[in-house]
Simulated scan of single mutants.
Amino acid sequence: MSPRATVPLTSDISAALAMFFHAGAGPSHTTITTVLTGSGYGDNYVYNPNAQGTNKQQRVLTALRTAQREPTRARTLVDELLSTLRVAGLIGEEASGENVDRLKRALASSGWYLTEDGYLQPFGNVDLDTGGRPALEEQVDRLRRSTSDPALLIGTAKELLESVSKFVLEELGIPVGNKMSYDQLWHLARERLGVLPQQVDPNLPGVEAIRAIHQSTWNIADQINKLRNLQGTGHGRTLPSGVSEDLAMLVVREAATVADYMLARLDREKG
């Protein structure tokens, strides 16, 4: 997915962004005018010291709701608003608080997240062509910190593991065909890294335990894929009732551990 992909602007996201301007807080009217006009959602606001006009929160919310109906430049509007909030120190770096948490939850429910420095990114697929190893490691780290709905977490975990298997094979010079299944990718990646149970030296102390641990890397990847398939291909599908957020977080932490192990084995393989 491209870094400039269109944000699915929802009512929750609009309301969460507008809350940064509640009761006169946030960047000035002048800054808001610049953002709205520059992004194509200008409201012809004129300051009148003798009359109470539209407040900042209402202006931002109106523009965002217009962008929901006319989304051609919605991503530009959202990015520019986030820029003003970063400059004001309201998001990014060490910024925290109810407004930040509300915005993160609203974005996560639509498959998006804020990076630590306050930029918008989509959950899910890692762009190996442009991000490579750093993108994978960032995804692993973010998964460990994530809190969101179970379906989104499990889907993201599966996509991370698929990206890791492809990355391993590409780094080892093995062509990855478009028709290769998830199972094939993982078997070949594990084989090339010596992670198949039958590849463990039988003379090693604890060989059976090591083989079982290596087998667990596939068991985790396989079961995450099966669980992911129960919700279809999109966010918001219904998972089995037993899949709570706590269980989803266990799933993604296991996925992150497997991803770390495979990348460490790759490092050793490449010297």
Results as ranks from 00 to 15, higher is better:
residue 187 H to Q: 14
residue 232 G to R: 15
residue 105 R to P: 01
residue 21 F to S: 10
residue 59 R to F: 05
residue 129 D to F: 11
residue 120 L to S: 07
residue 4 R to A: 12
residue 235 H to Q: 08
residue 17 L to N: 08
residue 268 R to E: 08
residue 264 A to Q: 03
residue 113 Y to F: 04
residue 20 F to V: 13
residue 151 A to D: 01
residue 58 Q to T: 13
residue 42 G to A: 07
residue 142 R to F: 01
residue 120 L to R: 03
residue 251 V to I: 10
residue 22 H to S: 14
residue 44 N to W: 12
residue 136 L to H: 01
residue 252 V to G: 03
residue 111 G to N: 06
residue 138 E to T: 01
residue 87 V to H: 12
residue 9 L to E: 00
residue 98 E to C: 07
residue 265 R to M: 07
residue 138 E to M: 12
residue 120 L to G: 14
residue 208 E to Y: 11
residue 51 A to G: 10
residue 35 V to L: 15
residue 79 D to K: 11
residue 60 V to E: 03
residue 130 T to A: 15
residue 147 T to L: 05
residue 117 D to N: 11
residue 119 Y to Q: 14
residue 104 K to H: 05
residue 59 R to G: 07
residue 55 N to L: 11
residue 144 R to D: 03
residue 216 S to H: 13
residue 130 T to Y: 12
residue 253 R to A: 06
residue 100 V to D: 07
residue 214 H to Y: 12
residue 77 L to I: 04
residue 181 S to L: 04
residue 62 T to S: 13
residue 97 G to R: 09
residue 255 A to E: 04
residue 210 I to L: 15
residue 186 W to D: 02
residue 60 V to G: 01
residue 176 V to M: 12
residue 97 G to N: 01
residue 146 S to I: 06
residue 124 G to E: 01
residue 155 G to W: 08
residue 194 G to Q: 10
residue 5 A to C: 11
residue 240 P to V: 14
residue 265 R to E: 04
residue 2 S to H: 03
residue 65 R to V: 10
residue 236 G to E: 00
residue 224 I to R: 09
residue 95 A to Q: 02
residue 171 E to L: 01
residue 236 G to C: 04
residue 164 V to P: 01
residue 7 V to I: 13
residue 123 F to G: 05
residue 183 D to N: 13
residue 87 V to Q: 15
residue 68 Q to W: 04
residue 72 T to S: 14
residue 167 F to P: 00
residue 110 S to P: 01
residue 158 K to W: 03
residue 63 A to E: 08
residue 75 R to T: 08
residue 162 E to Y: 03
residue 42 G to E: 05
residue 258 V to M: 11
residue 151 A to I: 06
residue 254 E to I: 06
residue 181 S to F: 02
residue 198 Q to S: 15
residue 270 K to Y: 08
residue 77 L to E: 01
residue 51 A to Y: 07
residue 218 W to K: 11
residue 193 L to Q: 00
residue 102 R to Q: 08
residue 182 Y to A: 12
residue 59 R to S: 04
residue 120 L to W: 08
residue 258 V to C: 03
residue 82 L to C: 08
residue 63 A to R: 15
residue 218 W to Q: 14
residue 170 E to P: 06
residue 41 Y to Q: 05
residue 126 V to K: 09
residue 271 G to A: 09
